[in-house]
Write a protein that binds this DNA or RNA. Structure first.
Lengths: 245, 245
DNA sequence: CTAACTTCACAGATCATACTTTTGAACCCC
DNA sequence: GGGGTTCAAAAGTATGATCTGTGAAGTTAG
């Protein structure tokens, strides 16, 4: 009955990777700056092994590099592997959230219409009809104003389109899409009641995929992306204002 | 003068990561199979530290997972981070090269036209004119039949379009594109003298970007992608034949 | 015989320490 | 001042010791 009384029994490695990665993304450890391993041991209160294993992981993400006799150097952001889910999460939890959200949205605009088009060719019948079902529920949630449910269904919908494309590279972007959808909802960029057209577009995508019409699927998904970009453009502009040089 | 006479002074960590990653990608360690750390120590002839640090890296790529009392388990390919440059390289060095090449090409088809469109809006003048220069050299190399030079210029061209898009996510895909271009050349999928139209399309992309015409840039790049996909389709078909179930 | 509970040993996780290797930088000599 | 030598700092590698979950075998109760 006593599996844990107080000690959270946290995973030291995972925790350390997370703290380090976040510190780097947040700029608490500036690009180019150098730290020694024993500093990090002390800073995080863990042993050398844990620090080293964490550093190896960060290094494989291109975030740090270590050289003998020198120490561990933080690498510039241009070297980071931005497609690593952890890196995405850290960056969304740092300043530059907005720029990140914009980049990710532009990527979605490129990828999702193409994924929809492929899905129209390759999606198994079961997936296609599940998509139809989801788009129906999505409509319902949109009309009733249940934003929480809407978000969950929206994520599920896009995830299914991506995986139905039959392309592993597209399918892998589901976590990225989930982050964007969650992010924009969290930033209050979604109206309480999504516009009727937006809801209709999801139905259109599902329907086009079901009847195997690549071209329509592509067009409908592109319309969704374009609308989403427009809705978020207010955010870009605000940001551009703030950092107007 | 004597920085190294014989000892390659290889990096044990990098070597071990590479050997392990390749072994997993090649299926030498089947998905779901389990190994103990001390087995790997012996197999690779390195110490626990090295094996553990390597495993942490592989784990962060989703390729393995380790559990107490059990060992290290190879995770299914669906969990791997396919956008990690190392994973891409390992997979291209394994069976499934062709499927990989196809996935990557589909991704290119989605991304590059969009990148070209953005570049038309955002590319600095210098980059645009450099693109024009590259497309000119590309034409020349194509006409003269210098496939090696052509490949290098082609990579440079597409890399510059991606980076000129001003989107960090697109820019990061340059290594991926380089792999595809190199791969298809290596597989003899490129004619000695690229078709005149293909060369012209590159000029069209550069020209559209220079005059800021997003729509034309998108269309021209899409045409390049479509043509490339067609040229490679023979490869897909061969493969489909071989593994016809 | 099944189900729940206990025990126990295994293998990873963490820590500590010793030793090796690279290499930046100080030092020295001409 | 240029070039070579020495030195020590810090990462890399190896290994033993200990801690901690946890699967499985063994045990008991129903």
């Amino acid at each position: 009955m006593s599996q844990s009384h107080l000690a959270p029994a946290v995973d030291l490695h995972a925790t350390t990777v997370d703290r380090l990665g976040l510190a780097v993304c947040r700029g608490e450890m500036a690009s180019g700056s150098i730290v020694r391993i024993d500093e990090l041991e002390e800073r995080f209160g863990v042993s050398r092994s844990v620090v080293r294993e964490a550093l190896r992981v960060l290094a494989s993400m291109g975030m740090v590099a270590s050289r003998r006799r020198v120490g561990v150097q933080v690498r510039p952001a241009t070297e980071w592997n931005l497609y690593d889910p952890q890196v995405i999460r850290w960056r969304l939890a740092s300043h530059g959230r907005v720029a990140q959200l914009r980049s990710l949205s532009e990527l979605r605009t490129a990828v999702e219409p193409q994924a929809a088009a492929l899905a129209a060719t390759r999606a198994p019948l079961a997936s296609a009809s599940e998509l139809m079902g989801l788009s129906g529920k999505l409509w319902e949630a949109g009309r009733s104003g249940d934003t929480d449910l809407f978000l969950r269904l929206d994520i599920q919908f896009h995830r299914l389109v991506l995986s139905s494309s039959g392309n592993e590279m597209f399918g892998m972007l589901d976590s990225l899409v989930a982050e964007v959808l969650t992010g924009r909802t969290h930033y209050g960029l979604m109206p309480q009641h999504p516009h009727e057209e937006a809801l209709q577009m999801h139905v259109d995508v599902a329907s086009a995929i079901q009847r195997g019409d690549s071209s329509d699927a592509h067009a409908a998904m592109l319309a969704i992306m374009t609308r989403a970009m427009t809705e978020m453009s207010t955010l870009w502009n605000e940001e551009a204002h703030k950092s107007a040089s």
